[in-house]
């Protein structure tokens, strides 16, 4: 059968979501952000929430996320997205309000905003991209940088005596009574991507059912440029080094008594 006979609209099984526009993304080749953006766009589309979604972009590599997904957005000051989301959701309770944050944004400069929004049980979803490094500013140490991991500001490897320990912020958040759903996922294989999509869908559904409670989907991710590896090798390195420190799976699901 000729390939032209297969490539027909009725045979379509996968394409990028319509609300992910054709703007070329500024991310480096192989960057996890692109996959995660795509999943958010897919879930918003599938839930029919395009007209009711308000996203909040962080400071960090994903600062320009608003250029790629065609919904309404607000761009936060570094770390302040959960505070903004709090107000938007309270003022517009029928909207889907979510933040998209990196490890520096969420777990360093925005720790207070993150913890308190979650502790108040705001009906928001936080998509937390943890790649253990500051991508946008050029590969400096993040709160989640692994022990011994080399970055521009710990060039000899993270020394816990100097810099403290990798911050397992999601484990901390799990303990908060306001948290409804806490999960840690990744997007390094097709199977992992499918799981992450389910997690994002669950988080967004929780935001919209009126029951309240905060939701966070941590996505353990790669930063090929920051890690100075190919995307392929980054995935392998992540499996071997990041996953032991940040194991995947649901940490809390109030609805399932987890």
């Amino acid at each position: 059968m000729a390939i032209e006979d297969i490539i027909k609209p009725e045979n379509l099984v996968y394409k990028k979501p319509d609300i992910m526009n054709d703007n070329s993304m500024h991310y480096c080749p192989g960057c996890s952000h692109g996959v995660i953006h795509k999943l958010i766009a897919e879930v918003i589309e599938e839930m029919g929430l395009v007209e009711n979604a308000i996203g909040i972009t962080p400071v960090g590599c994903a600062v320009f996320a608003y250029n790629y997904i065609d919904i309404d957005w607000e761009e936060a000051a570094h770390g302040r997205a959960p505070a903004m989301a709090t107000a938007i959701k309270r003022l517009r309770p029928n909207k889907l309000v979510f933040t998209y944050q990196g490890d520096g944004d969420l777990a360093a400069i925005g720790t207070a905003e993150t913890i308190h929004a979650c502790n108040r049980g705001e009906s928001i979803a936080i998509i937390f991209v943890n790649n253990g490094i500051y991508g946008m500013t050029g590969g400096q140490m993040a709160p989640t940088t692994l022990e011994g991991m080399k970055t521009a500001t710990c060039p000899y490897g993270r020394d816990v005596k100097l810099n403290g320990y990798p911050l397992k912020i999601t484990n901390l958040l799990k303990e908060l009574d306001g948290m409804r759903y806490v999960t840690r996922q990744s997007v390094h294989t097709a199977a992992a991507v499918r799981k992450t999509k389910k997690a994002i869908r669950k988080a967004f559904e929780n935001c919209m059912d009126g029951k309240g409670g905060a939701n966070i989907v941590e996505v353990v991710s790669t930063c090929s440029s920051g890690w100075k590896m190919t995307p392929e090798k980054s995935n392998k390195w992540m499996e071997e080094n990041m996953f032991p420190a940040y194991p995947l799976g649901d940490l809390k699901d109030k609805d399932a008594n987890i």
């Binding site: 394409k15 990028k16 070329s24 996890s32 692109g34 996959v35």
Partner: peptide
């Protein structure tokens, strides 16, 4: 699988 892991949404997949 290719389309799903593609970070840039470059791949459209058909099947019959």
């Amino acid at each position: 699988s290719c389309g799903i892991v593609c970070p840039d949404g470059c791949i459209t997949v058909y099947k019959t």
